[in-house]
């Protein structure tokens, strides 16, 4: 498979801040790739360098075999960029907006309207963009990024501010975009989203890529422990430790915060057997590691970008 994006040792400094500190990455053609990191991790700057909005101080970037900097009019029609903020013209309706963006690529109104239909906005076509709901505005901005049928699409936090239903609807759209053979680069606030959508993710912090891989592989890599939780008050911590030790059930991090009694274990079977024996299963929750845990382990902080 050929590479849609290759970046090699890119660095960018703003004054005293080394925003991007030697990022190398590659995205294969047709891949759904996620760039994750807390605010200030450098992912926005990295993305801007990849898109060709900013020049890197050092390093080399190639998109579809071409350099995005300086601005390359041959490359621009082949990439689509969706913006976080609603970057629309004043006082235009949804239809007028997408037709205008289409005209920049020499694409006629009929194809533009078809794209509006594709993202489910036909019925809102005559609504002014500043009167649209958050979900509608996000879908319109995605439509505007796709209207010229680009090979490579950058999506910057496309589901931020949407309700769960709207998010899931948008996921379907994003999957379809990728299924058509487009390469998609996604940044997101939501790790569950990255886990569901992305073939591979890179976790960034302090301007560096800490880890890259398939979400499931990253999760498996951190460890195999699961977290077991029951309601507080069913067993005291001391009694629980005593029983588990007696039964030979391995465990760590046994604690009670007054609401929940929680522990970590690599083998949940014996632990659950002990709890069942004590009839202490109320509020039981058994959860494997998620990308959140990967993130926490890699960056040392919660993923609340």
């Amino acid at each position: 498979m050929s590479e849609a994006i290759t970046a090699d040792g890119i660095r960018k400094r703003y004054g005293d801040v080394q925003a991007v500190d030697g990022v190398s990455l590659s995205v294969a053609t047709g891949e759904f790739y996620g760039l994750l990191g807390p605010n200030g991790a450098g992912k926005t700057t990295t993305l801007e360098i990849l898109e060709g909005i900013r020049e890197a101080d050092e390093g080399r970037v190639e998109l579809l075999g071409l350099s995005p900097w300086p601005r390359n009019p041959k490359l621009l029609p082949r990439i689509g960029v969706q913006f976080q903020a609603s970057a629309f013209f004043n006082k235009l309706t949804a239809r007028e907006t997408i037709r205008t963006f289409a005209s920049f690529y020499g694409i006629g109104p009929r194809a533009a309207d078809a794209m509006l239909e594709r993202v489910g906005l036909t019925e809102s076509a005559n609504v002014l963009t500043d009167k649209m709901s958050g979900g509608q505005a996000q879908r319109l901005s995605i439509a505007c990024a796709l209207v010229h049928d680009p090979e490579l699409v950058f999506l910057d936090e496309p589901t931020t501010g949407l309700d769960p239903q709207a998010r899931r609807n948008l996921w379907d759209l994003l999957r379809d975009i990728n299924a058509e053979g487009r390469t998609v680069v996604l940044t997101t606030h939501y790790l569950d989203e990255a886990e569901v959508l992305c073939d591979r993710v890179s976790v960034m912090d302090h301007g560096k890529v800490l880890k890259t891989g398939a979400p499931a592989a990253l999760v498996r890599e951190i460890d195999d422990t699961v977290r077991v939780r029951i309601e507080s008050g069913l067993l005291t911590v001391d009694r629980a430790r005593e029983l588990l030790t007696a039964a030979g059930a391995e465990h760590t991090n046994l604690e009670d915060d007054g609401v929940t009694l929680a522990l970590s274990t690599a083998e949940p079977g014996p632990v659950l057997a002990v709890l069942a024996e004590q009839n202490a299963l109320r509020g039981l929750e058994v959860r494997g590691a998620t990308l959140e845990d990967v993130f926490l382990q890699l960056t040392g902080r919660e993923y609340r970008a």
Binding site: I53, R71, L76, I79, V81, A87, F88
Partner: peptide, 10 residues
């Protein structure tokens, strides 16, 4: 509104 940036990418 970042329209300038969007135009630059067109």
């Amino acid at each position: 509104k970042r329209v300038l940036r969007r135009l630059r990418l067109a």
